[in-house]
């Protein structure tokens, strides 16, 4: 069997999404709204970085090139990253951090729920581990959506603003690229389209408890999975990759 390029590209989508999201959350280390939430955010960040490592490890095995996780994380350029645009969005304020987290938690919860049925044993084991983590993340972010949405006038307004601004980056999750379609057809990874209605129903439920209105525009920005990123991406990479690129092969 030759190298499955479609599978590798699809794995990069989720590996890179996990890495960039973990990096974004990591920025909040020491800057959380309260000490307890600071730790909560860092825990989630580490779960995501851990997930990225598992995916990169699998990619390296499939490529058979002896590359390490660090090679993938620190020595690729922007257009080689295939992460969702949503996770590039800056933390801005706690409402944005929570909304972003909630949107991808609900997606990944249903994604992993299906990926545990994959034909690939390694995808199954990554998904089983991630499913447990995601179930907790989703509980955490849902509760914060409700607390802020149904909180004070200011917290409600901030939550509503975050949802409105991030909405255009949601659609990308459910639209499979060509390489993802091939992988879905092979029963290697979850089909994305059916997740859309599950996602919408769950988000609607939480929003109705929180008193948050869904954004009205349904236009979805895409491109992340093909390597076309938002203007934020370059800044994320330059910060994340600075040390390994300045001092190659440095260890500590």
């Amino acid at each position: 069997m030759g190298i499955d390029k479609n599978l590798i590209s699809s794995l990069f989508v989720h590996a890179d999404t996990a890495l960039i999201h973990g990096q974004r959350l990591g920025e909040l280390c020491g800057h959380g709204p309260v000490l307890e939430q600071d730790i909560a955010l860092t825990n989630i960040s580490l779960d995501y970085i851990g997930r990225a490592r598992l995916y990169y490890d699998l990619i390296s095995k499939l490529e058979g090139n002896n590359k390490t996780e660090d090679d993938y994380a620190f020595h690729r350029i922007e257009s080689e990253f295939k992460n969702l645009l949503l996770v590039e969005y800056p933390n801005k304020d706690f409402a944005y951090t929570v909304a972003k987290q909630f949107f991808i938690d609900v997606f990944y919860y249903h994604f992993f729920l299906q990926c545990v049925e994959s034909k690939n044993q390694e995808i199954i084991s990554i998904s089983q581990k991630s499913l447990k983590e995601t179930a907790y993340h989703k509980k955490w972010s849902s509760e914060w959506i409700i607390r802020l949405g149904d909180g004070t006038d200011i917290s409600h307004q901030k939550m509503q603003n975050a949802v409105a601004d991030l909405w255009m980056y949601v659609g990308e999750m459910f639209v499979p690229t060509e390489f993802e379609q091939a992988v879905i057809k092979e029963n290697l990874m979850a089909d994305l389209l059916p997740i859309k209605s599950l996602w919408e129903a769950e988000v609607k439920d939480i929003f109705s408890i929180a008193g948050i209105k869904q954004a009205e525009n349904n236009w979805a920005q895409s491109g992340g999975k093909e390597g076309n990123h938002t203007e934020y991406m370059g800044y994320i990479l330059s910060e994340m990759q600075y040390i390994p690129r300045t001092y190659p092969n440095m260890i500590w």
Binding site: L35, E36, A40, N43, W140, E143
Partner: peptide, 11 residues
Amino acid sequence: ETMAIENARDV
């Protein structure tokens, strides 16, 4: 209380 349990889990 709900948040206290979750914070305790995280901390």
